[in-house]
Design a protein around this nucleic acid. Structure first.
Lengths: 230, 230
DNA sequence: ACCTGAACACCGTTCAAGT
DNA sequence: ACCTGAACACCGTTCAAGT
């Protein structure tokens, strides 16, 4: 009779929501299977019906936060009245940051994952599109994604590296992906061409030095016109 | 008789070295008290004679890697023949990166610590000194440290925030620190003055936007002269 | 002073058994 | 199909006891 006390049926979604709630409340450190179960008023073992193991739970949680970031960043209203491609990109980074501030555990979690969740690619595609429309080359936009990585997801890491097993993505999926994200496809194409024989698609050393150069040159410019700062 | 099989006495240093070895060999994930003990051919409980708990072991390990980074960055030969303050800072960041590549687990570990290890301050002091000698204001050098944070330690995070308990550092220590690191002391002084009443000493939102601006403006410059890239 | 055996609380996970 | 009790391996940590 009492609807309140009737146990609501579990579901993968409820499990995920509970995990997110625990992380938001007490951080990743207290996110145990038993604690999530407690939140759902069930036993820890029940979770394994909806989730392969803890690792995959965390992977799903990662996808969820990154998805939230993407949603915020892709809000069309961010484009309104922007003077510049820079302003659009800036607003998107600030939107990403807002989400990260709501989920302080997110950078840690994303960084601990072996690969960036697929949700992130939509965000990268949108950023590259904005830059290319703004007159940037694909190659510059590519470097920009690397340089902005830590502003978007809160940490620095390889983003474009292939997953452990190449075989787990089919040719059809590949083509569908290329159609959905033409700019990323073009970037991947160029990068693959330039790096034939290299260990990884992106020259991370070069990317590092490029970003470093941007920052140092920018600081030098501020040194010469110290009116803006201070 | 057989010196080989005679158990060498444990020591805090040996424990730390063993922990570092485990991390380098198999990553932080396998770094358990029992595994470290195994490496030392003793029981896990023995470690507690030299280390309060695992948390403090990890803190010591953090101090060790950050110390290694500082040593590399502070190598005087990095200053030789540098055309610019930028070149010195760049070489230091690249030196830091080399250490990080040797210890891929380092960014994770440093980021997971509640506070940056004291070892890091010597590095910041040296960088600020280089910039100020190169004609930068203290306030610009301060922002530079924030902007370069992820290039130096592999992640983004609050660096200057006070530790949980303010009381655990005495007035004498404070003054000794100020004498050893005059530039950081000056920066702290200015920041404390500017932020009276604010929650934290550094306006992280402003630092974020500043770094973002450096990157975006740098990219825009590259868009206009696309000869250098591509 | 330095090390360890036994023990405890907590964790992820499996599996057979319940409904 | 969906959930759970019992059980196992592994973890950090304490403490009394050994040398």
């Amino acid at each position: 009779m009492p609807a309140r006390t009737t146990k609501e049926a579990l579901s993968r979604e409820r499990v995920l929501d509970a995990a997110l709630a625990v992380a938001d409340l007490d951080g990743l450190g207290t996110l145990t299977m038993r604690r999530v179960a407690e939140e759902l008023d069930c036993e820890a073992m029940s979770l394994y019906y909806y989730v392969r193991d803890k690792e995959s739970l965390l992977a799903a949680l990662t996808e969820a936060v990154v998805g939230e970031i993407c949603e915020s960043c892709l809000d069309p209203s961010l484009q309104e009245g922007a003077a510049d491609w820079r302003e659009v990109v800036k607003r998107r980074c600030l939107a990403a940051r807002e989400v990260m501030l709501r989920h302080p555990w997110a950078p840690h979690l994303v960084a601990s994952q072996p690969t960036a969740p697929s949700t992130a690619y939509a965000l990268f595609e949108a950023l590259v599109a904005t830059m290319v429309d703004g007159g940037c080359s694909h190659s510059l936009a590519h470097r920009a994604i690397h340089s902005l990585g830590s502003m978007l997801l809160g940490f620095t890491q390889e983003l474009f590296e292939p997953e452990a097993g190449d075989g787990d993505i089919s040719m059809e999926e590949m083509e569908a992906l290329a159609l959905a994200m033409p700019h990323l496809a073009k970037i991947a194409e160029v990068a693959a061409h330039e790096s034939k024989g290299a260990l990884s698609m992106c020259d991370t050393q070069a990317e590092f030095e490029f970003t470093l150069g941007l920052i140092l040159d920018g600081l030098e410019a501020h040194r010469c016109e110290p009116d803006s700062a201070h």
